[in-house]
């Protein structure tokens, strides 16, 4: 390897490189005196920085602790609500709802198969027999058929036309939209919950970032 690894030496010195990168740097150091000198300079600097005295004459531990405790104001002691219920409960609940709806959808598919194959034709209302329309449209057709309301009749006809046009894609798209909607609802609720339990204070990190 001919390229110098100067840019990686800080992370190498701090032990922050991944094993493969570390091996790469070590391999380079064996053959590059320039990078070895760079590393040596960094090590000398690090020794100087860490060589500053640590045992400074600060207030002894017990006295410091007592001073802090004297300054502590009263605080509301209500324990924070654990986020575990929301963290696990909500997605699990949504998953359960999705599973139930999927099962219902499967049941409807088998029902339609039974109707179309003639096995269940006698036990079901007339609109199901021999039709290719979706079950929900068929149900609305039944309701529209017995309803005297012309508005509902019109709506039913419109739905039948729409259903024919979309065919099976409508159901598929509806399911994808539902799953996506459930996911985003959960994500929004989780984000809102995180914002509520992690207010920005006491950190004035914006000041740190901006400088």
């Amino acid at each position: 390897m001919n390229e110098h690894v100067t840019a990686w030496l800080d992370a190498y010195q701090d032990g922050e490189l991944r094993p493969a990168e570390q091996r790469r740097v070590e391999a380079h150091l064996t053959e590059c005196s320039t990078c070895r000198e760079e590393l040596a300079a960094r090590q000398v600097l690090s020794d100087w920085i860490r060589g500053l005295p640590k045992d400074l004459p600060f207030t002894p531990t017990e006295r410091f602790t007592a001073q802090v405790m004297l300054r502590l104001p009263p605080r509301h002691t209500a324990a924070p609500q654990t986020p575990a219920a929301l963290l696990w409960g909500l997605p699990l609940g949504l998953l359960l709802i999705c599973s139930m709806l999927q099962a219902l959808w499967g049941l409807i598919a088998w029902l339609r198969f039974g109707v179309q194959s003639g096995l269940l034709a006698e036990g079901l209302p007339n609109p199901f027999v021999g039709t290719t329309q979706s079950l929900w449209v068929a149900l609305l057709t039944v309701l529209g058929g017995v309803s005297p309301s012309p508005v509902l009749q019109t709506a039913t006809q419109w739905l039948q036309q729409t259903d024919r046009w979309f065919g099976e894609w409508l159901g598929l798209l509806t399911w994808q939209a539902q799953v996506t909607l459930l996911y985003w609802v959960w994500l929004l609720l989780w984000g809102w919950h995180q914002y509520r339990i992690h207010p920005r204070h006491p950190d004035k990190t914006e000041a740190i970032k901006s400088a």
């Binding site: 300054r71 924070p80 986020p83 339990i197 006491p202």
Partner: peptide
Amino acid sequence: VRAWLNLNSYR
């Protein structure tokens, strides 16, 4: 002192 006051926000 700030840590004490904001302890409930720690997770």
